[in-house]
Design a binder for these strands. Structure first.
Lengths: 231, 231, 231, 231
DNA sequence: AATGAATGAGACTTCATTCAT
DNA sequence: GATGAATGAAGTCTCATTCAT
C-alpha cells in the first residue's frame, strides 16, 4: 500500500487500533477514490481526466480528493503502485514450489495470471503504463524493473527448466521466446481496457487463453512431444 | 489522404491546377506538421500534447498549424487516417495473389507487416488508438472496422486455406487463433512506441519476428509437419 | 475587550455569573488564539495566513477557532482592537498629571511608549494597520482616530506647553513637528516586526530610544537650552 | 531592468534594432502591467491581490499577464526590483562629488531622496517590503543589503565627515543616529502608501521634509552652530 | 502564407467555513 | 467544548484558438 498523500510506497504502520465509528467511512475513502481514478485514467488518459470527474464517480467533491492525494500526479502514481504491489511475488512463488512438468507449469502460470489480471484491478496497469510512460518516467522505470523484468525472469526460468528436462526444444532463444509467449495475454488485457468496447466481434477470453496455451506449448515443444497441457 | 482541414477521409479533388512556384514549399507543410504531431501524440498522448510543441517540432508557429488543420482533434484524426489508409489493401492483395504454401504465406505476411509497420509511420497507430479510443469513438470504430477487422479477415482466410490444404491443424478455432497469432507483432509495435525506451533489455526485432513465426507455425502445424518457414 | 465572536468593540456585559469549573480553561482559549493569530498576521499578512496555521500555533484545531471568532476577519479585528484598547488612555493621563519640565515629559513619554510597545503585544498594530489598511477600511479609520490622532493630540499638547514655558522654540510648526518626533519610534517598531530578521546589523533598541530623544530634544530646544533629558 | 519573464536582474541585450509597427504596443506592455501590479500590491498586499485585477487595471486580460511574467511571484519580484535598481547609485554619487558643508549635504540628500521617492515609483518599495518580507525572504535580503545597508553607509559617511569637520557633535553614535535620521522620510513614504487615505489631517510633505531637516540638523549640530540648512 | 500577441474558457489546487460526531 | 472530514467558491495558471499585421 502506498501513502495516499504522496503515492510513495510505504511500510505498514500499526495505527489501526482505535477507530471511532465515523472514521470507518473515512478510511474507505481512499479506496473509492482510487477505483474511480483508475477507471477514468484508463478511459480518458491522465491529461484527459478531470479531477472533478474522479470525485463525482467516487461520490465526493473535488476538495475531498485532495484530503487524500496531494495532486493529480500523486493520485495516478497511487493507482499504478497500489494495483501492482499486491501481485508482485505471486508468480515467483508458484515456480519455486512447482513439482509437475514444465509445460503444465507454463500453462498454469498463464491461466493464473489471466485470472488475477482479468478479474482484479491489476488489469489496468499495462494500458496505463503504455499510454502514460513518457509522462511518468519514474513510474515507467519502476514498472519495467519490478514488474516487466521480474515477469520475464520467471518465464525464462520455466523455459530453461523445460529445456533441461527435454520438454522444450533446446535451440530456443529463451529471452526472445519469453516475449513471444507473453504477448497474447498482454495484448488481451490491453485490448480489454481500450478497444474492446468498439469491437463488435466478441471474444471468449477463457477460450482465448486456452488457444494461446495450446499454440505456444506446441510451438515450443521438443520433437516427440506436441501435446499441449490440455489434449 | 484526408482533407487537411477537417481530417475527414476524402476522395481526390482536382484542385491542384494553378500552382504558383511558392506553393511548392507550402504543400510540404502538412506532412511536416503531421509527422511532428504524430511524434508528440505518441509520446504524450492527445490531451498531454500542446499545439505549440507540435508547431515547434514542425519548425513553424502555432498559427500556421491552423492554416492546415482546423483544430487539434482534426489534426489527431489526420494523423491516424493518413497513416492508416496507404496500408489498407496491402495484405489483401498479397493473399489473393499467393501461390505457395500457406505456412510460407503466413510467414511472408508477418514479415511484410513487420517491415511496413516497423519502418513506416503506420507503427504509431496501434499505440494511439489504444490510448485514445475513448476520446475518439468515431475514429476507434473506423479503426476497428477498416483495420482490425479487415486484418483479421485476411489472416482467417490464410488459416482456412492452410487447414483445407492439410498444412494446419483442422481442429483450430480459427477466429481465436488469429488473435493469438496477431499478438506478438502488435505487442512489439506498441512496446516500441511507449515502454521501449525504459527497457534496458534491448530486443532484436528481426530476431523477434523470426522466433514468433517459428513458434506460431509449429504451434498450428498439422501432425507430420512441424517445419516453420525457415528451417 | 472586544466580543470574541464578532470582533466589535464591546462594553461589559455582566454575563459571567454562572461558570462551571471546566470553563476556566476554555476562557483562556481566546487569548491563546489571539496571540497565535497576531503572530501569523504580522508574519504573513491577513490574506497570506491560513486559519489552520493559526489553530495549530494555538494548539487547537480549525473548528475550535470558529467557536470563538465567527470569521477570519472578525479574528483580525479582534487582534487589532484587543491590543489597542488597553493602551489608549495611558499617555493622556501621564501628560495631565505631569509637573516637571516639558523636555523631561517628552522623554518620559517616549521611553514609556517604548516600554509599552516594545514589550507588549501592542507592537504588532502599526505593522498590521500599515499592511492591511486598504483591506480593513473600517478598522483603519478606527485606528487613525482613536490611536494616531489621539497620540498626536497628546504630543502636540506637550509641545505647546514646552513652547509656552520657553523650553522649546516658539517658531515650531507644532503639527508637523509632532509627526517628525513620532517617526523614530514608529519606524523602529515596524522594522522590528518585519525586516528586522533580515537585517544583520543589530540594533540596541534602548540606545536607539536614547539617541532619538537626544536628537529630538536638541532639535526643538529653545536657544540657550540644548540639554537633552540625559546629559 | 529585470527579465519580465522571471523577475531576475538582467544585463542589457541590444536587441531593440528592428521593430515592426505592431510590436511598439507590445513592448510597452510589461511597463503597464508592472504599474498596475505595483498599485494593487501596495493597496491589497501580495496575497490579497488577484491577477485578474492587475490585468484589468493594465487594460489586458489575465492570460496576457502570463505572456510577460511567469507567475504572480515573479511579477511581485519584478515590481520591487525594477523600481529599486534605477535609484541605487544615486546617493553615493552625490556624496562623492559634494564640496559644500556637511549640513548642506545632509539636507540636500534628504530633499533629493524625497523628490525621488515621493514622485517616482520607488516609493512603493518600503511599504511592500515591510508588508511582504516574510513571504519573500530572498527579496527581503536583497533589499536589506542593496538598499537599506547601502543607504545607511552613505548617511554614515556624511555624519563622519561632519564630525571630522567640526560641524556635528563628536560624541554622536553614528550608526544609531543614522537610523534616527532616516526615520522621518521612511515613515512619511510608508504612511503615504497606506494609512494616508484614512487620515483626514492632511500633511504638506515639502513642509514636513523641511521641519525634519531643521530638527535633525539642530539635533546633531556641534555646540556653537545650531543653524539648519535653511535659516 | 506566416506570425505571435491576445484571449478566455477551463483545469488544478487552496482554504474559509460548516457540521456530524 | 472540541474535532476533523467534507464542501465549494475562488484563485492561479494553461492552452486551444483567433486575428491584426
Amino acid at each position: 500500500m502506498s501513502d495516499p498523500k504522496t503515492g510513495v510506497p510505504l511500510q505498514e504502520e500499526g495505527d489501526d487500533q482505535e477507530c471511532p465509528r465515523w472514521r470507518r467511512r473515512a478510511e474507505a475513502r481512499p479506496g473509492e477514490i482510487l477505483d474511480a481514478a483508475m477507471e477514468m485514467f484508463v478511459e480518458k488518459g491522465f491529461a484527459g481526466t478531470r479531477m472533478e470527474e474522479i470525485a463525482q464517480r467516487a461520490g465526493v467533491t473535488k476538495g475531498t480528493v485532495y484530503l487524500y492525494y496531494e495532486s493529480k500526479e500523486a493520485l495516478f502514481r497511487a493507482v499504478v503502485q497500489d494495483n501492482i504491489l499486491p501481485s508482485l511475488e505471486e508468480g515467483e512463488r508458484t515456480v519455486a514450489e512447482w513439482t509437475g512438468s514444465s509445460a503444465d507449469l507454463l500453462a498454469e502460470l498463464m491461466r493464473r495470471k489471466w485470472q488475477m489480471i482479468g478479474r482484479s484491478r491489476l488489469s489496468c496497469v499495462p494500458k496505463l503504463m503504455t499510454s502514460e510512460a513518457a509522462n511518468f518516467p519514474e513510474l515507467a522505470r519502476f514498472y519495467m524493473e519490478e514488474v516487466v523484468h521480474r515477469g520475464r525472469r520467471v518465464l525464462e526460468s520455466v523455459l530453461r527448466r523445460g529445456i533441461e528436462g527435454g520438454e522444450f526444444r533446446p535451440e530456443l532463444d529463451v529471452r526472445t521466446a519469453v516475449r513471444v509467449i507473453q504477448s497474447p495475454l498482454l495484448n488481451a488485457v490491453t485490448h480489454m481496457q481500450s478497444l474492446q468496447r468498439f469491437d463488435d466481434e466478441e471474444l471468449d477470453f477463457d477460450a482465448f487463453v486456452d488457444v494461446a496455451i495450446d499454440i505456444i506449448l506446441r510451438g515450443i515443444a521438443a520433437n516427440g512431444d506436441k501435446d499441449g497441457s490440455d489434449a
